[in-house]
Amino acid sequence: MPLSLDEVKRIAYLARIEISESEALRTQGQLNDIFGLIERMQAVDTSAVEPMTHAQGRALRLREDGVTESDQKSLFQSVAPQVEEGLYLVPKVIE
C-alpha cells in the first residue's frame, strides 16, 4: 500500500521532523521503495505465531527500592542548551 504525500507529512509531523514539500516528495518515493521490500513479509502466514518482542524470553529483573543516585545537576546541565535557576528552558509551553 503506497504512502500518500499527506501520510509522509503526517508521520514527519508525528516524529517532529520539519519536512519541505520537495523533501516530502523525495521521501515518499524512497519510503515506497522500502515498503516494497517490507511488504514481502505479507507472503507468509503468521496467524498462529506469537510475536517475539525480546531476544530472550526472560522475566523482568526487579531492583530493590532504595535511593542510589545523588544530585549531579550541575554536571548534567553543563551540556544543556539553555538553563536558568536549575531549570531547562524551552519555548513557552501552552496548555
Binding site: D65, V67, T68, D71, Q72, F76, Q77, G86, L87, Y88
Partner: peptide, 29 residues
C-alpha cells in the same frame, strides 16, 4: 510511596530544588 523512582535510583521526595532529583535515567541521557 517508594523511596526511589520506578525506573531509576533517584529519590522521590517532594520539594527538592529543581532537577536535583533528576538522575541520568530521569533526564534520558
Amino acid at each position: 510511596s517508594t523511596a526511589s523512582k520506578i525506573f531509576s535510583g533517584a529519590s522521590t521526595q517532594f520539594g527538592a530544588p529543581p532537577n536535583a532529583q533528576a538522575c541520568a535515567v530521569d533526564i534520558a541521557l
